[in-house]
Structure formats: structure tokens, C-alpha cells
Design a binder for these strands. Structure first.
Lengths: 171, 171
DNA sequence: ACAGATTTGTTGCACATGCAAGTATCGGTT
DNA sequence: AACCGATACTTGCATGTGCAACAAATCTGT
């Protein structure tokens, strides 16, 4: 068992785990998004940007770094920051040391919006996720999830490369 | 401990588990999507529709039922099926018993596309997910994920209702 | 048998998202 | 100092997505 069979269909066990994973993510994520939008008119990615910035030194981060951390493509982040900037939640400044780079910086309004909404979001995470699990299960979850993501380039742009490394089907 | 504290920030444990969950989903999902698109020009939602249909009796399903199973909104599914229909992968037929309803039905081409791509996808799931976990861990994963999604209405349209049931912030 | 509530699926709309290509800058090499 | 490959970010484009509103059909209770 567990003989790493390649080229065959999934076992019942694999299939159930995998599908439950997809369902859980969809269900939790949707609930959180809905709550955040209806209560504070903030999308989950927007919230994610705010949190990431507030945790960063000086409340600022390079675009690329920010994109990686909020799990979005660079172009996606560019647009998101565009919108958030025109809503006044972040500003953009050219990097001092590197004229190519841009810093996204949290504004006062951004901080305020974050403070307003963080209660809702954390309550949501607790309600939809952590309350349903014991401490041991939370540790299990962390361990399992870490195994799933640690080996990939997290950067989004790496998609094509991953494909090629995996070989087999590529072009 | 595990005292279901409401109204406070997340513990380290909660935070790590939650973020790992998001990262894992993003990383795995992106990899699978990339592989499927580059190898077979098929998106993950498209693949999901094909699989869901092939598993259904007579390879056909009501639109709403299909939307629920592939974790999409109805409108999203309508559009997706539109595209897949014009690509010849599915057909649409009016329901015999209920003139409101539509059946989405897998076509021969759809079945063929599924057969072509299923190897890639399953290999991807194994490679990015199940190979990294033992059988026990797969069972853990299934157990954990089931706890996360079972209590919510899975139907997408229920977003607003969930919001209200959860109370607190809702209007 | 009929009015009203419900359910089903589709569309108008606005917005989100990623890829590929484009522009600007950096850094190392010659 | 001029070049060339790498890096950072932005845009054109195509596509995906959901909500709210809608039309059609069904169901329910009287």
C-alpha cells in the first residue's frame, strides 16, 4: 500500500480526500468573502493586501513581494492595487534604491478599513474554520498543508516552468 | 485551551493552519490548472464539468445540480456550459419532466476530451497532493476537510442567507 | 382553477484575473 | 562605457465570475 502508483486512477481514499479539500476551500472562502463584502465592502484579496501591508516594516512592500504573499499574479496585483489606490487604501511610491520597483504603502484610510473589518474576518475564520477543529487538528492541518505547498515555487509566474519540470505532457 | 474564544485575535496555531491552508490550495490548484491548460487546453472548471457529467447517470445533469457539484454559481455555470457547448463538449436539452429545467449532457467529443486529459489531471493530483501524504494523512485530510465544509449550504447562491444566519454584522 | 410564492435557468453588468508582450531599469561583462 | 541578459512592473487582450434582475414554469393553498 501507499506504493506511489503512477499512471493509474486514484484510490477511494485519495479521491475523497482531494474532493473534500476542494469543497472545504470553496465553502470556507465563499463564506468569508460574502461576510467581508456585505459587512465592509471589502473583497478577500483586498483584505489580504491590507493585512500583508500592515505586517510589513513601515507598512510597505514591493509589488512583487506583495503579489507573492497574497498569492496573486503580478498583473492581478497591479490591478488590485490600482483599485485600492483609487479607493485611497494604499499609495504607490517609486523605490528609493531601485527605479524599476514600486512600493505599495498602506494609507491611514487603509489602516482604518482594516481595523474596521478585521473583527468580521477573524470571527469568520474562527467560525468557519478554527472553532470546528481542536488544537491537535489545527496542528494536523498545518502539517498537512505545509506538505502540499512547500515544494512548489509559490510565485505565480512560475506556472510554465513547473509544467516543464514536470515534463511528460509539456509541449 | 481551545476555549472557543470569540472576539479576539487568532492564536499562532490558528493563524498558521489557516494560512497554510490558503497557500496549499493556491499552489496545488494553480499547478493543476497550468498542467491541464498547457497539455490539453482545458481549464480546471471545464475538466470538473466533464468528470461530473461522466459520473452522472446517462451522462447528464440538471444545470443547478451541476453548478452545485462543480462548486460554481449558476450564472457562472451557464456561461461555462455556453462555452463548452460551442466547443462541442456538452449539449443542452430541455428537461422532459420540467420545462423550466435544462440538462447538460456530455457529448462524444466531451468524453474524448475527458479521456485525453484525465491522465494528466490524475497524475497532477497524485504528484501535487496524494504522493506527498501517507494513507493515514489522506484520511486525516478527509476528516479535517469534511469538518470544515459540512455545516454550510454548499450551494453558491446561499451566500446572502449564510450571512444572515451568521447574524452579527448582517444589516 | 387561480393568484402568489418558489424554483430554474439565463442575461446585463461590473469587475477580477492571468498570460504574453511591452517598457524601463539594473547589473555584470567586456 | 556600451551591451546584454535578468528583473520589475504595467498594459492589451481574452476570459472567467458573481450578483441582481428577469422570464418562464411549477407548486401550493384556498
Amino acid at each position: 500500500m501507499t506504493k506511489t502508483a503512477v499512471g493509474r486512477r486514484l484510490t477511494e481514499r485519495e479521491l475523497k480526500a482531494w474532493r473534500a479539500f476542494l469543497r472545504a476551500h470553496s465553502s470556507v472562502t465563499r463564506a468569508l468573502e460574502n461576510e467581508l463584502v456585505t459587512a465592509h465592502d471589502l473583497s478577500l484579496p483586498e483584505y489580504s493586501v491590507l493585512v500583508t501591508l500592515v505586517e510589513a516594516p513601515e507598512h510597505r512592500l514591493r509589488m512583487t513581494e506583495l503579489a507573492d504573499r497574497v498569492l496573486m499574479s503580478r498583473s492581478g496585483l497591479t490591478r488590485l492595487v490600482d483599485r485600492m489606490q483609487s479607493d485611497g487604501m494604499v499609495d504607490r511610491f517609486r523605490c528609493p534604491g531601485d527605479a524599476r520597483g514600486m512600493h505599495a504603502v498602506l494609507t491611514d484610510l487603509g489602516l482604518q478599513r482594516l481595523k474596521e473589518s478585521t473583527g468580521t474576518h477573524l470571527r469568520g475564520v474562527r467560525e468557519h474554520v478554527t472553532v470546528k477543529l481542536t488544537d491537535e487538528e489545527l496542528d494536523q492541518l498545518h502539517a498537512l498543508m505545509s506538505k502540499l505547498s512547500c515544494c512548489e515555487r509559490l510565485a505565480v509566474g512560475a506556472g510554465a516552468r513547473v509544467q516543464i519540470e514536470n515534463g511528460q505532457d509539456a509541449l
